[in-house]
Design a protein around this nucleic acid. Sequence first.
DNA 1: ACCTGAACACCGTTCAAGT
DNA 2: ACCTGAACACCGTTCAAGT
Lengths: 240, 240
Amino acid sequence: MEKTSTARQRREQSLTRAQIITVAIKLLDDTGESGLTFQALSKLLATGPGAIYWHVANKSDLMTAACDAIVSRTLGTTSVDVPPEEAIRAIALELFDTIDAHPWVGGALMHAPGQLPMVRIFERIGQQLRSLDVPAGREWAAVSTLLNYILGVAGQNAANAKLAKVHDLKRSSFLEDVSAAWSKLDVNEYPFTRSVVDQLASHDDRKDFVDGIDFILRGIAAEREKMVGPEGLEPPTKRL
Amino acid sequence: MEKTSTARQRREQSLTRAQIITVAIKLLDDTGESGLTFQALSKLLATGPGAIYWHVANKSDLMTAACDAIVSRTLGTTSVDVPPEEAIRAIALELFDTIDAHPWVGGALMHAPGQLPMVRIFERIGQQLRSLDVPAGREWAAVSTLLNYILGVAGQNAANAKLAKVHDLKRSSFLEDVSAAWSKLDVNEYPFTRSVVDQLASHDDRKDFVDGIDFILRGIAAEREKMVGPEGLEPPTKRL
DNA sequence: ACCTGAACACCGTTCAAGT
DNA sequence: ACCTGAACACCGTTCAAGT
């Protein structure tokens, strides 16, 4: 009944914020969002719950820090020197895969608006949009759209993972439950939903995700093309 | 120190699920997401915490039910007989305004994937997309994109409201904090973010939101136009 | 069938006391 | 400067006991 694995050391060196974050990530990965407790954390770190508060402001601070560690690691590996639209797709997909592997990151991302992890994504996408020559006045809207879409999918993934863990641990397809519930909806009130129930089981989350990114990118491009118009003259992009 | 307002009745009639949901909504509106407790709720209903569990499975069930009450009310008022793209914009805007007025709805929406409130939105958008003649194979991707984008904004609004309440109750602009933080970022690492800090204060959340919807709609339309091609022939849309 | 309310098993956070 | 760990103020949820 006792976790004999990661609980050793402590004593030779003093506790570190980085150390805490590392163990927190391990805990979150192993036991999910609800598994991160100061109790469990302090046991793994062989210390008291109070000690952690010396290095970390509170649980929310810890979550954001753990999230940022993952996000910065992910964005660090993105390839450069590809066309901007492809780069954005690559950034988005890497985020998707990361959140798929660590669903709690999705939840943490959602609950830390304006915080460092989100700014990292904002910046990366913004830079690519800038080399796409999106007019200065439309940059904000374009980045926000992409970011909010990514956050929506991220949050949904996190929620799915939590539901799957709560409902029961074995059956990976709670999709069947949803599918069954949708099939019982009134056909007159929910004609569309009823007509696409079968796609619930067959659809590919990852593919759908990129499709969404592509819709947005196409929308941004379409607006740009319309603005260049007959003269082909664009307002000079604001530098720095 | 005692809430004298809404605490009366009880006794003449038995407790109702609808009654519970109504009071829960009031509590959520007045005190935020963290204000909804079975303790506070049962006090307002003049009963014990255990009584509520006879009508409601658990807190998550209650939250989803409260969320659904708001969402169904909102979607019920949407006008009909407008072009599909405009209808989608209208649906999205009504949702935005609703979530702006009840930020907790954003959080509840995010945590109930596949649940009734989300299906309502899914269905409404899906119907409009169908009258837009989006090819059957692309409907799922198109609805998902719009829905996930809306969910992203919804979640962000909820998170902002929570942060604003926690940080301090008076100053409505925690934007200043974020703005200050962004201004301290390294210019070489965060050139884009630094160049748009001023837009943080001046931007209009609601307008940005519609802009995002428009990007996506334009993206969907652009794809459709490309597919009709020279022949102008579309595959017949699957009926029912 | 429906309500009561004490009790349970947990939370995050604090803080006097130690080193 | 940093850690200890008991204590505090809450949670959601349960359940024997009532009507």
